[in-house]
């Protein structure tokens, strides 16, 4: 029974925000990561991008990874967004299935993931490779300082409409909770013998760590801004 689960995609933002020419006209929720990245790179304060208001579901503080000088205090601003990506060669997964068989499958993947990846061996291997990439991308997002979670604690679910989501359980859920992760989004792809996945996590706002260099602390309003 997962202790932490995030399976619902955030609704696609308004059309004004889909003007990002880098991503094409696709309306699927899979576009969201690219748009969110645009925010993190171009609009740390989430005010306006190209004149458009950010979607309310996305109105979380996305902070810069820096130390800001405010008055005579240093305000450490931890990041509010994490990104992980991984790529896997499909034939390597096919080779592993051929060599280790069921033991490989059941050590790495959940029942749902195995059943989601049926068909001819290379077709199934492509889906499995993308899911393995998603698990590795998730580990990069969770940033474990000790041991990493069992791969089966990170499950990719494929929904009938075609999009995928992530569910965490066990040690993965614990790490997500410790990191303050409130949202997870995943996108999978495979082409030309390669499979890849990108995972994006939003973290809840953390209290800023203020180090005073003198008796003057930063203005109180900064806490709300971070």
């Amino acid at each position: 029974m997962p202790v932490y689960q995030r399976v619902q995609p955030i609704p696609a933002p308004s059309s004004a925000l889909r003007s990002d020419s880098r991503s094409g006209p696709d309306d699927s929720p899979h576009r969201l990561p690219a748009i969110m990245l645009m925010y993190s790179l171009e609009s740390p304060s989430l005010t306006e991008v190209d004149g458009a208001r950010p979607h309310s579901e996305m109105a979380v503080p996305i902070r810069s990874r820096s130390v800001r000088r405010v008055g005579k205090a240093s305000v450490s601003t931890d990041t509010g967004i994490r990104v992980g990506a991984d790529v896997v060669e499909v034939h390597q997964v096919a080779d592993s299935v051929a060599h280790f068989g069921d033991r490989y499958l059941r050590r790495i993947f959940t029942e749902h993931e195995i059943s989601s990846c049926s068909g001819p061996p290379m077709v199934a291997a492509a889906g499995l490779a993308a899911r393995f990439a998603a698990k590795e991308a998730t580990i990069k997002v969770l940033r474990p300082s000790g041991h990493q979670p069992d791969w089966r604690c990170m499950e990719v679910s494929r929904h009938p409409e075609g999009w995928c989501s992530l569910s965490l359980s066990g040690h993965a859920a614990v790490l997500a909770e410790r990191a303050g992760i409130t949202e997870l989004a995943v996108s999978l792809t495979h082409e030309g013998g390669m499979a890849a996945a990108v995972v994006i996590a939003l973290c809840r706002p953390l209290e800023p760590k203020v180090k005073a260099s003198s008796s003057h602390l930063g203005e109180p309003c900064l806490c709300g801004a971070l």
Partner: peptide, 26 residues
């Protein structure tokens, strides 16, 4: 690579009839 590590792990388990627990997955 990380995926090759999985194969190494499974092959070592086969050789020695052991299983790496989650606490060793680092």
């Amino acid at each position: 690579t990380s995926h090759a590590t999985v194969n190494v792990m499974l092959a070592l388990e086969d050789e020695l009839d052991v299983e790496f627990p989650e606490s060793m997955l680092r």
